[in-house]
Design a binder for these strands. Structure first.
Lengths: 205, 205
DNA sequence: GGCTGTTTGTGTAAGTTTGTACAAAAAATC
DNA sequence: GATTTTTTGTACAAACTTACACAAACAGCC
């Protein structure tokens, strides 16, 4: 195990490996090879081997990798061998869709609370959740020690909500708002904007 | 203009530049510098200059970049100086949210049709759209010459739907299903899976 | 008009990432 | 049990990406 400093680009591929491996596990497959995994996800076998070997010698020559074992290791490395509570901020269509999404379960996450700054929405039920006011957000996030949030507000509110999240101790933000946000260096942000993703492909059409 | 072969990693940053520039333009700002833009989006000024200079000399020493001009150039480079028709496949919560999203307008895209393979959903109206059966999908996509699609089905249906999209001539797929899909080399895929994005951040918490 | 400050575009160096190839280990086959 | 096949982990080379630094161009000001 060479825990020195793993490049972020490798960390970014591990969830993709994990997703494919869990899919194989669900089908009852017990072992796989870097070759087979690579064909599933479109990454070269050598790269997969090199990425995984950063964390230890998890495979066996001639056989490949034990799927249950490798899944366990990857979950531990990514720290999703536990459940992280997540808050959703912004209860528009996207916030609703995510609040009702059942794909977080078993992959390390649990939506615990949802917020909106519109007084007309506060108190309304969305599935199992009652929408809370963003006025009480910092308090509730601190109380529950929530470290991760999903931002699904319009662009106009995103920076202000991000600031409040940071103040409340949130260290990871998944930003669905179509705008870049500024946060301190110790806060991580991932961006999901369907338009930028589409624009990245039109260049090649 | 050195159109030889622009690295994909640069193409991927251009939509982020464009998004920030259009935001400045909407505020009425007429010029900006690589420095200012870099601070907005968290990318070094040198990198922004080098990226942009791949396509021509769009800036002016001492002044910076004309925002309207640079926006025009980036839109042309990314081919979003026109409107691309897009189909959405899978009318669950996420499909609904995207069908109702008004953020595509003015950024180069227009949702033209939506599909679902559930007979109980076919014919129902979602906003302005009538849900069509996936049985008629290939036919309708070809008829309208649609080249881009958003895939919002469960993982179990994603590969089959992707195959149908490819057969119908679609060349770019934005995949919200939590699974890697296999497509021919000339078809582009971008992935949006909130869980893999979250898992990429938990490593650092 | 000359001086000062700003900002671009780019050459070069440094750093990072990927690809290639192969020894070593394990399993399968005969 | 010897040979062949499969597959890992990694050394080394190649390719790619980013950072640094600065000349040249332009604007603003006195």
């Amino acid at each position: 195990m060479n825990a020195d400093k793993i490049p972020d680009i490798i960390i970014g591929r591990l969830p993709v490996y994990l997703r494919a491996l869990q899919r194989l596990a669900d089908k009852g497959v017990l072992t796989t090879s870097s070759q087979e995994l690579g064909e599933m996800i479109g990454i070269s076998a050598a790269q997969i081997r090199k990425d995984i070997s950063q964390f230890g010698e998890f495979g066996k020559q001639g056989t490949g990798y034990s799927i249950p074992f490798l899944v366990d290791r990857l979950r531990a490395i990514l720290k999703v061998d536990r459940v992280w509570d997540v808050a959703i901020v912004g209860m528009g269509d996207m916030g609703h869709a995510l609040a009702r999404y059942n794909g977080f379960t078993n992959r390390g996450f649990h939506v615990l609370m949802v917020f909106d700054n519109d007084p007309a929405k506060v108190g309304i039920k969305v599935g199992e959740f009652e929408i809370f006011s963003t006025a009480v957000m910092a308090e509730k996030l601190k109380q529950q020690k929530i470290k991760m949030a999903v931002l699904t507000t319009p662009a106009s509110a995103a920076q202000e909500m991000a600031d409040q999240l940071v103040k409340a101790g949130v260290k990871a933000i998944l930003n669905y708002a179509p705008i870049s946000i500024n946060v301190p260096d110790d806060v991580h942000v991932q961006y999901i904007d369907p338009v930028t993703h589409l624009q990245r492909m039109t260049y090649y059409l």
